[in-house]
Design a protein around this nucleic acid. Structure first.
Lengths: 200, 200
DNA sequence: TACAAAACGGACCAGCGGTCCGTATCGTTG
DNA sequence: CAACGATACGGACCGCTGGTCCGTTTTGTA
């Protein structure tokens, strides 16, 4: 019996903090302006509890992010087409990119917070590595695709970066559909290294 | 006489601060760990002086960045081929991207600091807008190029983002030449032709 | 019911970016 | 050269932050 099961109040408080943080982040313009003390107060919990449960600020944000991301990952790993593994690479890649883009659109504040929290590079987070590895391996399987798949995967993912999405969708008021279409077009151009079919 | 010319000690101190900041940033792993007080001390100046000269932290970093960037801009606006405006778009675009990449490689810490300083999105900085506008207009002039030039310009620039460059060149130890070649290949694919021949 | 083990919470801390204002320097004018 | 506004200096000072500590309370088991 190496692990003890966590106590009831601990899990309740953890959930309360998660919920409070989620709400506060969603309500504020920038994540930076929500302090840990505020989150603790909103959750009806002491600061010590908050830090014991999540370690530090990034720990909290990461936990929230992972929770939101989990269903998407599930769809990618076990789900049906076009996200699931039964899809051929040439159509799965755009589907994945679209899913990532939609996720960022739906979780703007959170993604922004995670990708630009102080010092830590988003490229060292393990969820990035998962996306990158998957995408890279798919690109390798596409016959016509020239160039280095590793780098191409990085760039395609960079097209969905939270602050770029925020700039286009938020500051420049691009509608969701337009962004998705542009990303799809761009991905198509990259995938078939020759000139792509005329845009619709 | 709307402007007064600045006092001599003011300009001397400004230069001292700039030099000290430059050195400290270059010496530290992450810009975040260099405090304003340290910079002031290293420059042999009071904190007040520092803040009066640059406004705030981002002001200082931006001033440093602009100073480094100026020669590159000069080469792009008035210089000879392949960066200058006499170059045809199809070969000028890769040259510009390469110049940006090299600049980021040569100024890793600084670029990293500017692109991820706290809250401010790098997409609202005016130097970004200059690059983006130039690149977008060039893309529009390329006949075979399909898709939205505005978005494509964003993505191509995203391929040179400081933290991606840092991840690849620093953490993954990619040699400089490899990165440049990969970016060139990728850009060529986007521009609408197959893989290019040159690989110097 | 007794009693460890685990979790709580908020006073507390060091350090940050940024401000303020009494003092020192500049450079201009007679 | 003297004198005197204007300008810049510098570091004590402020509010606030993320993060820690430890006496107190809750939990669950024997």
């Amino acid at each position: 019996m190496p692990d003890r099961s966590p106590r009831k109040d601990a899990v309740r408080n953890r959930a309360a903090v998660l919920a409070a943080a989620d709400e506060l982040f969603a309500a504020s313009d920038s994540t930076e302006e929500v302090s840990m003390a505020e989150i603790a107060a909103a959750a009806g919990v002491g600061k010590g509890t908050l830090f014991r449960a999540f370690g530090d600020r990034v720990g909290l944000i990461r936990a929230l992010y992972q929770a939101r991301l989990e269903p998407v990952w599930h769809a990618v790993e076990d789900g049906p087409a076009p996200l699931g593994s039964s899809t051929p690479p040439l159509s799965r890649v755009p589907a994945l990119l679209d899913a990532v883009l939609c996720f960022k659109l739906d979780n703007r504040r959170l993604a922004l917070a995670l990708e630009s929290t102080g010092n830590a590079s988003p490229y060292e987070a393990e969820h990035y590595e998962r996306w990158h590895t998957l995408l890279r391996d798919l690109l390798r399987q596409i016959p016509g695709h020239a160039g280095d798949s590793d780098f191409a995967a990085h760039v395609l993912l960079a097209a969905t970066r939270a602050d770029l999405v925020e700039h286009l969708a938020g500051h420049e008021q691009f509608p969701r559909a337009k962004l998705r279409a542009q990303l799809a077009t761009f991905a198509a151009a990259v995938l078939g290294s020759g000139p792509p079919a005329p845009a619709a």
